[in-house]
Simulated scan of single mutants.
Amino acid sequence: MKTTIVQDICEGRIDAAVVYRSDLVIAFADHDPINHGHLLICPVEPYESLMDLPTHVDSEIQRVAKLLYARVMEHYQPDGISFIQNNGAFNELTHYHLHLFPRYHGDKFGWSSSGLGVQSIADIKKQIAPLCIEKT
């Protein structure tokens, strides 16, 4: 069975700049960072998506994310921090990973819209009605 890059890092087959390690979670610097201080927070086990994470592992990831957020803010003093987590075809590692990266005014990081344009609240409410968990 093929291992993921994260498993290879956890098992020492690939070197990484690790900033946190427990039995459940590992966090390390991204090798192709958006900005200095760009980190990946991952479960040690090869869960592929957010939906695969057991609650206790997800809780540990969120706890570590908050700790590292504070440290990155103190050390790099960015204007803010972004988190991104990709699933499905957009998870190039096939191993769950949460990106944490410092952001600075003018850093040119961003995303582009698909071109839908600004929509009315009425249209948006109709579009998302099937997603509602509770009646609003």
Score class of each variant (00 low, 15 high):
K125Y: 03
D32P: 00
G106D: 03
F101Q: 03
T4E: 11
N35A: 08
C42T: 13
P33I: 01
R71F: 04
K2P: 11
F101V: 00
S49L: 01
I5R: 10
P130K: 06
R63W: 07
I5L: 14
C10M: 05
R13F: 10
V57A: 03
K126M: 07
I84C: 08
D23C: 03
L24I: 02
I34V: 15
L67H: 12
R63K: 15
I121K: 15
A70V: 01
E11F: 10
I26D: 00
V118R: 12
P102L: 05
C42S: 10
N91W: 06
V19E: 11
Q62P: 00
D52I: 00
R103Q: 01
P54I: 04
N86I: 03
T55Q: 14
R63P: 00
L98V: 02
A16G: 09
V118S: 09
G80E: 02
G37M: 08
V72M: 14
G106W: 04
I128D: 05
V18D: 06
A17K: 08
T4K: 01
T136L: 13
E74S: 06
R13T: 05
T4I: 04
L24D: 15
F90P: 00
L98M: 15
S82P: 01
Q7D: 07
P46C: 07
I84Y: 08
Y20C: 07
L24V: 01
S49D: 15
A129D: 06
S112E: 14
I128G: 02
T94Q: 14
R21W: 08
A122D: 14
Q119G: 03
L24M: 13
S22I: 06
A122T: 11
F101A: 01
M1R: 12
I84E: 05
I26N: 03
Q7C: 07
H99A: 06
V57C: 02
L39K: 06
I81Q: 05
S113D: 13
K66P: 00
S120W: 04
I34H: 10
Y76K: 06
T55V: 08
A29G: 00
G12L: 11
A65K: 14
C10N: 13
A89R: 13
H105L: 09
A89T: 11
Q7S: 15
C132L: 15
M1G: 13
L50Y: 12
A65M: 13
L93I: 13
H105T: 07
L24E: 15
L93D: 02
D52K: 02
